[in-house]
Design a protein around this nucleic acid. Structure first.
Lengths: 193, 193
DNA sequence: ATTATCTATAGATCTATAGATAATGC
DNA sequence: ATTATCTATAGATCTATAGATAATGC
Protein backbone atom coordinates (compact mmCIF):
# COMPACT_ATOMS: atom_id res chain seq x y z
CA UNK A 1 0.00 0.00 0.00
CA UNK A 2 2.99 2.30 -0.33
CA UNK A 3 3.75 4.46 -3.38
CA UNK A 4 6.86 6.26 -4.64
CA UNK A 5 7.89 9.70 -3.48
CA UNK A 6 6.83 11.18 -6.81
CA UNK A 7 3.44 9.49 -6.58
CA UNK A 8 3.04 10.70 -3.01
CA UNK A 9 3.78 14.28 -4.08
CA UNK A 10 1.19 13.96 -6.85
CA UNK A 11 -1.29 12.57 -4.32
CA UNK A 12 -0.72 15.58 -2.09
CA UNK A 13 -1.50 17.83 -5.07
CA UNK A 14 -4.65 15.82 -5.78
CA UNK A 15 -5.75 16.30 -2.17
CA UNK A 16 -5.21 20.06 -2.44
CA UNK A 17 -7.12 20.19 -5.70
CA UNK A 18 -9.99 18.14 -4.26
CA UNK A 19 -10.05 20.36 -1.17
CA UNK A 20 -10.14 23.50 -3.32
CA UNK A 21 -13.10 22.18 -5.25
CA UNK A 22 -15.08 20.90 -2.27
CA UNK A 23 -14.37 23.88 0.00
CA UNK A 24 -15.57 26.29 -2.67
CA UNK A 25 -18.73 24.25 -3.11
CA UNK A 26 -19.61 23.53 0.53
CA UNK A 27 -17.49 25.90 2.64
CA UNK A 28 -14.65 25.01 5.01
CA UNK A 29 -17.06 23.71 7.66
CA UNK A 30 -19.19 21.83 5.15
CA UNK A 31 -16.47 19.38 4.15
CA UNK A 32 -14.72 16.77 6.27
CA UNK A 33 -11.26 15.30 5.86
CA UNK A 34 -12.82 12.02 4.77
CA UNK A 35 -14.77 13.71 1.95
CA UNK A 36 -11.63 15.48 0.70
CA UNK A 37 -9.57 12.28 0.78
CA UNK A 38 -12.33 10.28 -0.89
CA UNK A 39 -12.59 12.92 -3.65
CA UNK A 40 -8.83 12.50 -4.13
CA UNK A 41 -9.25 8.71 -4.20
CA UNK A 42 -7.57 8.04 -0.84
CA UNK A 43 -8.68 6.98 2.63
CA UNK A 44 -8.92 9.55 5.37
CA UNK A 45 -6.37 8.01 7.73
CA UNK A 46 -3.46 8.92 5.48
CA UNK A 47 -4.28 12.60 5.57
CA UNK A 48 -2.14 13.42 8.59
CA UNK A 49 1.04 12.20 6.92
CA UNK A 50 0.72 15.12 4.46
CA UNK A 51 -0.89 17.79 6.60
CA UNK A 52 -0.67 18.61 10.27
CA UNK A 53 -4.30 19.71 10.59
CA UNK A 54 -7.40 20.76 8.69
CA UNK A 55 -6.37 24.38 9.17
CA UNK A 56 -3.14 23.73 7.31
CA UNK A 57 -5.07 22.05 4.50
CA UNK A 58 -7.38 25.06 4.25
CA UNK A 59 -4.48 27.51 4.06
CA UNK A 60 -2.62 25.43 1.47
CA UNK A 61 -5.74 24.85 -0.60
CA UNK A 62 -6.44 28.60 -0.68
CA UNK A 63 -2.88 29.34 -1.74
CA UNK A 64 -3.06 26.76 -4.51
CA UNK A 65 -6.49 27.85 -5.75
CA UNK A 66 -5.38 31.49 -5.86
CA UNK A 67 -2.24 30.58 -7.79
CA UNK A 68 -4.14 28.46 -10.30
CA UNK A 69 -6.71 31.21 -10.88
CA UNK A 70 -3.97 33.77 -11.42
CA UNK A 71 -2.29 31.54 -14.01
CA UNK A 72 -5.56 30.95 -15.83
CA UNK A 73 -6.33 34.66 -15.96
CA UNK A 74 -2.89 35.53 -17.27
CA UNK A 75 -3.10 32.87 -19.97
CA UNK A 76 -6.45 34.16 -21.09
CA UNK A 77 -5.28 37.78 -20.94
CA UNK A 78 -2.32 37.02 -23.22
CA UNK A 79 -4.67 36.01 -26.02
CA UNK A 80 -7.42 38.61 -25.73
CA UNK A 81 -7.60 41.74 -27.85
CA UNK A 82 -9.14 43.81 -25.04
CA UNK A 83 -7.84 42.07 -21.88
CA UNK A 84 -9.91 44.12 -19.41
CA UNK A 85 -13.19 43.55 -21.25
CA UNK A 86 -12.39 39.86 -21.66
CA UNK A 87 -11.58 39.48 -17.96
CA UNK A 88 -14.73 41.29 -16.86
CA UNK A 89 -16.88 39.41 -19.36
CA UNK A 90 -15.72 36.04 -18.16
CA UNK A 91 -15.72 36.88 -14.45
CA UNK A 92 -19.11 38.58 -14.49
CA UNK A 93 -20.89 35.74 -16.27
CA UNK A 94 -23.66 33.28 -15.41
CA UNK A 95 -21.19 30.47 -16.10
CA UNK A 96 -18.98 31.74 -13.28
CA UNK A 97 -21.98 31.85 -10.94
CA UNK A 98 -23.35 28.41 -11.67
CA UNK A 99 -20.18 26.36 -11.14
CA UNK A 100 -19.20 26.88 -7.49
CA UNK A 101 -16.57 24.13 -7.49
CA UNK A 102 -14.39 26.07 -9.91
CA UNK A 103 -15.60 29.60 -9.16
CA UNK A 104 -13.34 32.34 -7.82
CA UNK A 105 -12.38 31.58 -4.23
CA UNK A 106 -12.59 35.26 -3.32
CA UNK A 107 -16.31 34.99 -3.96
CA UNK A 108 -17.01 31.56 -2.51
CA UNK A 109 -14.69 31.61 0.52
CA UNK A 110 -14.00 35.21 1.57
CA UNK A 111 -16.55 35.14 4.39
CA UNK A 112 -15.33 31.68 5.48
CA UNK A 113 -11.73 32.92 5.50
CA UNK A 114 -12.66 35.95 7.61
CA UNK A 115 -13.76 33.54 10.36
CA UNK A 116 -10.45 31.65 10.48
CA UNK A 117 -7.17 32.31 12.27
CA UNK A 118 -4.01 33.94 10.98
CA UNK A 119 -2.53 31.21 8.74
CA UNK A 120 -5.68 30.92 6.64
CA UNK A 121 -6.30 34.66 6.57
CA UNK A 122 -2.71 35.30 5.53
CA UNK A 123 -2.92 32.81 2.67
CA UNK A 124 -6.16 34.40 1.59
CA UNK A 125 -4.86 37.96 1.87
CA UNK A 126 -1.84 37.06 -0.25
CA UNK A 127 -4.07 35.74 -3.01
CA UNK A 128 -6.26 38.80 -2.80
CA UNK A 129 -3.26 41.08 -3.28
CA UNK A 130 -2.37 39.13 -6.40
CA UNK A 131 -5.90 39.58 -7.68
CA UNK A 132 -5.74 43.34 -7.19
CA UNK A 133 -2.30 43.50 -8.82
CA UNK A 134 -3.61 41.56 -11.79
CA UNK A 135 -6.51 43.99 -12.20
CA UNK A 136 -4.12 46.92 -11.89
CA UNK A 137 -2.16 45.57 -14.86
CA UNK A 138 -5.34 45.61 -16.95
CA UNK A 139 -6.38 49.18 -16.18
CA UNK A 140 -5.57 52.21 -18.38
CA UNK A 141 -2.26 53.89 -17.58
CA UNK A 142 -3.34 56.59 -15.13
CA UNK A 143 -0.97 57.63 -12.28
CA UNK A 144 0.01 54.71 -10.05
CA UNK A 145 -1.81 55.85 -6.90
CA UNK A 146 -5.05 56.39 -8.81
CA UNK A 147 -4.69 53.09 -10.59
CA UNK A 148 -4.17 51.17 -7.38
CA UNK A 149 -7.20 52.77 -5.80
CA UNK A 150 -9.28 51.96 -8.85
CA UNK A 151 -8.07 48.36 -8.90
CA UNK A 152 -9.24 47.96 -5.30
CA UNK A 153 -12.66 49.35 -6.17
CA UNK A 154 -12.91 47.17 -9.28
CA UNK A 155 -11.93 44.05 -7.33
CA UNK A 156 -14.58 44.82 -4.68
CA UNK A 157 -17.25 45.42 -7.28
CA UNK A 158 -16.45 42.22 -9.19
CA UNK A 159 -16.44 40.05 -6.08
CA UNK A 160 -19.57 41.69 -4.68
CA UNK A 161 -21.52 41.28 -7.91
CA UNK A 162 -20.85 37.56 -8.25
CA UNK A 163 -21.47 37.08 -4.53
CA UNK A 164 -24.92 38.65 -4.81
CA UNK A 165 -25.76 36.99 -8.11
CA UNK A 166 -25.02 33.58 -6.59
CA UNK A 167 -27.00 34.13 -3.38
CA UNK A 168 -30.42 34.18 -5.02
CA UNK A 169 -32.28 31.49 -6.95
CA UNK A 170 -33.28 33.88 -9.70
CA UNK A 171 -31.24 33.80 -12.94
CA UNK A 172 -32.94 36.97 -14.20
CA UNK A 173 -31.89 38.88 -11.09
CA UNK A 174 -28.39 37.44 -11.38
CA UNK A 175 -28.10 38.63 -14.96
CA UNK A 176 -29.30 42.11 -13.95
CA UNK A 177 -26.66 42.33 -11.24
CA UNK A 178 -23.85 41.07 -13.47
CA UNK A 179 -24.82 43.37 -16.31
CA UNK A 180 -25.10 46.40 -14.01
CA UNK A 181 -21.67 45.59 -12.55
CA UNK A 182 -20.12 45.19 -16.02
CA UNK A 183 -21.18 48.63 -17.18
CA UNK A 184 -20.49 50.39 -13.88
CA UNK A 185 -17.01 48.89 -13.63
CA UNK A 186 -16.08 49.62 -17.23
CA UNK A 187 -17.21 53.23 -16.83
CA UNK A 188 -15.27 53.66 -13.57
CA UNK A 189 -12.14 51.93 -14.85
CA UNK A 190 -11.82 53.92 -18.03
CA UNK A 191 -12.74 57.44 -16.95
CA UNK A 192 -9.88 60.00 -17.07
CA UNK A 193 -7.83 60.56 -13.92
CA UNK B 1 -40.62 24.78 33.68
CA UNK B 2 -43.40 26.14 31.52
CA UNK B 3 -43.84 29.84 30.65
CA UNK B 4 -46.75 31.91 29.34
CA UNK B 5 -47.56 32.22 25.65
CA UNK B 6 -46.24 35.78 25.62
CA UNK B 7 -42.99 34.67 27.27
CA UNK B 8 -42.71 31.79 24.80
CA UNK B 9 -43.12 34.19 21.87
CA UNK B 10 -40.42 36.44 23.36
CA UNK B 11 -38.18 33.39 23.78
CA UNK B 12 -38.65 32.53 20.11
CA UNK B 13 -37.56 36.05 19.21
CA UNK B 14 -34.54 35.72 21.48
CA UNK B 15 -33.59 32.49 19.73
CA UNK B 16 -33.84 34.19 16.32
CA UNK B 17 -31.76 37.10 17.56
CA UNK B 18 -29.11 34.79 19.02
CA UNK B 19 -29.05 32.78 15.80
CA UNK B 20 -28.63 35.92 13.70
CA UNK B 21 -25.69 36.99 15.82
CA UNK B 22 -23.95 33.61 15.97
CA UNK B 23 -24.55 32.69 12.33
CA UNK B 24 -23.03 35.98 11.16
CA UNK B 25 -20.02 35.38 13.37
CA UNK B 26 -19.40 31.68 12.70
CA UNK B 27 -21.43 30.78 9.60
CA UNK B 28 -24.45 28.47 9.38
CA UNK B 29 -22.28 25.37 9.68
CA UNK B 30 -20.16 26.80 12.49
CA UNK B 31 -23.02 27.01 15.00
CA UNK B 32 -25.04 24.19 16.50
CA UNK B 33 -28.59 24.28 17.85
CA UNK B 34 -27.22 23.92 21.36
CA UNK B 35 -25.01 27.02 20.99
CA UNK B 36 -27.93 29.08 19.67
CA UNK B 37 -30.22 27.96 22.48
CA UNK B 38 -27.53 28.53 25.12
CA UNK B 39 -26.94 32.06 23.74
CA UNK B 40 -30.68 32.62 24.14
CA UNK B 41 -30.56 31.23 27.70
CA UNK B 42 -32.44 28.00 26.95
CA UNK B 43 -31.62 24.30 26.63
CA UNK B 44 -31.32 22.75 23.21
CA UNK B 45 -34.09 20.18 23.61
CA UNK B 46 -36.82 22.80 23.49
CA UNK B 47 -35.71 24.06 20.11
CA UNK B 48 -37.94 21.76 18.08
CA UNK B 49 -41.11 23.09 19.71
CA UNK B 50 -40.45 26.43 17.96
CA UNK B 51 -38.75 25.34 14.75
CA UNK B 52 -39.12 22.27 12.57
CA UNK B 53 -35.43 22.11 11.62
CA UNK B 54 -32.17 24.02 11.55
CA UNK B 55 -32.94 25.03 7.95
CA UNK B 56 -36.11 26.76 9.11
CA UNK B 57 -34.17 28.56 11.83
CA UNK B 58 -31.64 29.76 9.25
CA UNK B 59 -34.33 31.07 6.92
CA UNK B 60 -36.21 32.82 9.73
CA UNK B 61 -33.04 34.28 11.23
CA UNK B 62 -32.07 35.72 7.82
CA UNK B 63 -35.51 37.24 7.37
CA UNK B 64 -35.35 38.80 10.81
CA UNK B 65 -31.81 40.11 10.44
CA UNK B 66 -32.64 41.66 7.07
CA UNK B 67 -35.74 43.33 8.48
CA UNK B 68 -33.87 44.70 11.50
CA UNK B 69 -31.09 46.09 9.30
CA UNK B 70 -33.59 47.75 7.00
CA UNK B 71 -35.31 49.42 9.96
CA UNK B 72 -32.01 50.64 11.38
CA UNK B 73 -30.92 52.11 8.04
CA UNK B 74 -34.24 53.90 7.55
CA UNK B 75 -34.11 55.37 11.04
CA UNK B 76 -30.61 56.65 10.47
CA UNK B 77 -31.52 57.96 7.02
CA UNK B 78 -34.40 59.99 8.43
CA UNK B 79 -31.98 62.03 10.55
CA UNK B 80 -29.07 62.55 8.14
CA UNK B 81 -28.56 65.65 6.06
CA UNK B 82 -27.00 63.71 3.18
CA UNK B 83 -28.58 60.24 3.53
CA UNK B 84 -26.52 58.59 0.79
CA UNK B 85 -23.19 59.81 2.17
CA UNK B 86 -24.23 58.86 5.71
CA UNK B 87 -25.25 55.38 4.61
CA UNK B 88 -22.04 54.79 2.67
CA UNK B 89 -19.92 56.24 5.46
CA UNK B 90 -21.39 53.94 8.06
CA UNK B 91 -21.50 50.83 5.87
CA UNK B 92 -18.00 51.26 4.48
CA UNK B 93 -16.36 51.68 7.88
CA UNK B 94 -13.83 49.78 9.97
CA UNK B 95 -16.46 49.52 12.69
CA UNK B 96 -18.71 47.57 10.35
CA UNK B 97 -15.84 45.22 9.49
CA UNK B 98 -14.70 44.49 13.01
CA UNK B 99 -18.02 43.49 14.56
CA UNK B 100 -19.13 40.38 12.63
CA UNK B 101 -21.96 39.54 15.04
CA UNK B 102 -23.88 42.65 14.05
CA UNK B 103 -22.45 43.22 10.57
CA UNK B 104 -24.56 43.20 7.42
CA UNK B 105 -25.74 39.66 6.71
CA UNK B 106 -25.31 40.19 2.98
CA UNK B 107 -21.59 40.40 3.66
CA UNK B 108 -21.22 37.72 6.30
CA UNK B 109 -23.69 35.11 5.00
CA UNK B 110 -24.17 35.53 1.23
CA UNK B 111 -21.78 32.71 0.34
CA UNK B 112 -23.29 30.51 3.06
CA UNK B 113 -26.79 31.21 1.75
CA UNK B 114 -25.75 30.34 -1.80
CA UNK B 115 -24.98 26.81 -0.59
CA UNK B 116 -28.41 26.26 0.96
CA UNK B 117 -31.71 25.10 -0.49
CA UNK B 118 -34.68 27.13 -1.68
CA UNK B 119 -36.23 28.28 1.63
CA UNK B 120 -33.01 29.88 2.85
CA UNK B 121 -32.11 31.30 -0.55
CA UNK B 122 -35.59 32.77 -0.93
CA UNK B 123 -35.43 34.44 2.47
CA UNK B 124 -32.02 35.82 1.59
CA UNK B 125 -33.08 36.99 -1.88
CA UNK B 126 -36.04 38.83 -0.38
CA UNK B 127 -33.78 40.73 1.99
CA UNK B 128 -31.38 41.51 -0.80
CA UNK B 129 -34.17 43.05 -2.89
CA UNK B 130 -35.05 45.25 0.07
CA UNK B 131 -31.43 46.35 0.32
CA UNK B 132 -31.35 47.30 -3.36
CA UNK B 133 -34.67 49.13 -3.06
CA UNK B 134 -33.35 51.05 -0.08
CA UNK B 135 -30.27 52.11 -2.02
CA UNK B 136 -32.46 53.11 -4.96
CA UNK B 137 -34.35 55.50 -2.70
CA UNK B 138 -31.09 57.22 -1.77
CA UNK B 139 -29.82 57.76 -5.32
CA UNK B 140 -30.29 60.99 -7.29
CA UNK B 141 -33.49 61.11 -9.32
CA UNK B 142 -32.33 59.82 -12.69
CA UNK B 143 -34.76 57.75 -14.86
CA UNK B 144 -36.09 54.64 -13.08
CA UNK B 145 -34.32 52.04 -15.23
CA UNK B 146 -30.95 53.75 -14.83
CA UNK B 147 -31.49 54.21 -11.13
CA UNK B 148 -32.31 50.55 -10.61
CA UNK B 149 -29.24 49.45 -12.54
CA UNK B 150 -27.09 51.83 -10.51
CA UNK B 151 -28.55 50.60 -7.23
CA UNK B 152 -27.60 47.03 -8.16
CA UNK B 153 -24.05 48.10 -8.95
CA UNK B 154 -23.80 50.15 -5.75
CA UNK B 155 -25.10 47.25 -3.65
CA UNK B 156 -22.56 44.89 -5.23
CA UNK B 157 -19.71 47.29 -4.67
CA UNK B 158 -20.65 47.92 -1.02
CA UNK B 159 -20.98 44.24 -0.21
CA UNK B 160 -17.82 43.34 -2.09
CA UNK B 161 -15.74 46.01 -0.40
CA UNK B 162 -16.66 44.99 3.14
CA UNK B 163 -16.27 41.31 2.19
CA UNK B 164 -12.71 41.92 1.03
CA UNK B 165 -11.83 44.26 3.85
CA UNK B 166 -12.91 41.63 6.39
CA UNK B 167 -11.06 38.73 4.77
CA UNK B 168 -7.55 40.01 5.53
CA UNK B 169 -5.80 40.63 8.82
CA UNK B 170 -4.49 44.00 7.73
CA UNK B 171 -6.37 47.12 8.94
CA UNK B 172 -4.38 49.34 6.56
CA UNK B 173 -5.43 47.25 3.57
CA UNK B 174 -9.02 47.25 4.83
CA UNK B 175 -9.03 51.03 5.07
CA UNK B 176 -7.64 51.33 1.53
CA UNK B 177 -10.38 49.09 0.17
CA UNK B 178 -13.15 50.89 2.04
CA UNK B 179 -11.87 54.30 1.03
CA UNK B 180 -11.48 53.30 -2.61
CA UNK B 181 -15.03 51.93 -2.60
CA UNK B 182 -16.42 55.08 -1.00
CA UNK B 183 -15.06 57.38 -3.69
CA UNK B 184 -15.79 55.02 -6.60
CA UNK B 185 -19.37 54.49 -5.48
CA UNK B 186 -20.05 58.17 -4.83
CA UNK B 187 -18.68 59.05 -8.27
CA UNK B 188 -20.74 56.35 -9.98
CA UNK B 189 -23.91 57.11 -8.05
CA UNK B 190 -23.95 60.82 -8.71
CA UNK B 191 -22.81 61.07 -12.31
CA UNK B 192 -25.45 62.40 -14.77
CA UNK B 193 -27.62 59.86 -16.62
C1' DA C 1 14.71 -0.14 7.21
C1' DT C 2 11.78 3.34 5.96
C1' DT C 3 7.40 5.19 4.98
C1' DA C 4 2.89 6.10 2.26
C1' DT C 5 -1.37 4.40 2.83
C1' DC C 6 -5.04 1.68 5.08
C1' DT C 7 -8.08 -0.10 8.82
C1' DA C 8 -10.03 0.76 13.09
C1' DT C 9 -11.28 3.59 16.63
C1' DA C 10 -11.34 7.26 20.41
C1' DG C 11 -13.52 11.26 21.80
C1' DA C 12 -16.06 15.25 20.65
C1' DT C 13 -19.92 17.37 18.51
C1' DC C 14 -24.19 17.83 15.89
C1' DT C 15 -29.25 17.21 14.53
C1' DA C 16 -33.23 15.36 16.08
C1' DT C 17 -36.41 12.73 19.14
C1' DA C 18 -38.60 10.73 23.43
C1' DG C 19 -40.30 11.16 27.71
C1' DA C 20 -40.40 13.84 32.14
C1' DT C 21 -41.55 18.06 34.55
C1' DA C 22 -44.04 21.90 36.05
C1' DA C 23 -46.55 26.07 35.11
C1' DT C 24 -50.33 28.02 32.24
C1' DG C 25 -55.00 28.56 30.78
C1' DC C 26 -59.44 26.78 30.20
C1' DA D 1 -55.64 19.19 30.22
C1' DT D 2 -52.42 21.44 27.67
C1' DT D 3 -47.88 22.72 26.58
C1' DA D 4 -43.16 25.22 27.03
C1' DT D 5 -39.07 23.73 28.56
C1' DC D 6 -35.74 20.33 30.40
C1' DT D 7 -33.05 15.97 30.76
C1' DA D 8 -31.29 12.20 28.41
C1' DT D 9 -30.01 9.89 24.51
C1' DA D 10 -29.86 7.82 19.69
C1' DG D 11 -27.44 7.88 15.55
C1' DA D 12 -24.57 10.25 12.46
C1' DT D 13 -20.45 12.73 11.51
C1' DC D 14 -16.03 15.00 12.34
C1' DT D 15 -10.98 15.62 13.69
C1' DA D 16 -7.22 13.19 15.01
C1' DT D 17 -4.43 9.13 16.44
C1' DA D 18 -2.60 4.26 16.77
C1' DG D 19 -1.11 0.34 14.81
C1' DA D 20 -0.98 -2.76 10.67
C1' DT D 21 0.38 -3.45 5.90
C1' DA D 22 3.09 -3.58 1.93
C1' DA D 23 5.91 -1.32 -1.45
C1' DT D 24 9.93 1.79 -1.95
C1' DG D 25 14.71 3.01 -1.61
C1' DC D 26 19.03 2.56 0.52
Amino acid sequence: MRVSKEEAARNRERVLEAAGRLFRKHGFDGVGIDAVMAEAGLTHGGFYKSFSSKEELIAEACRRAAGQADEAWRAEEAQAEDPLAAFLGQYLSQAHCSDPGSACLFVTLAADAARRDTPVRDAFAEGLCGFVTHIESLLPKVPEAVRHERALAVASAMIGAVTIARATNDPAFAEQVLSAARSAILAAATRPA
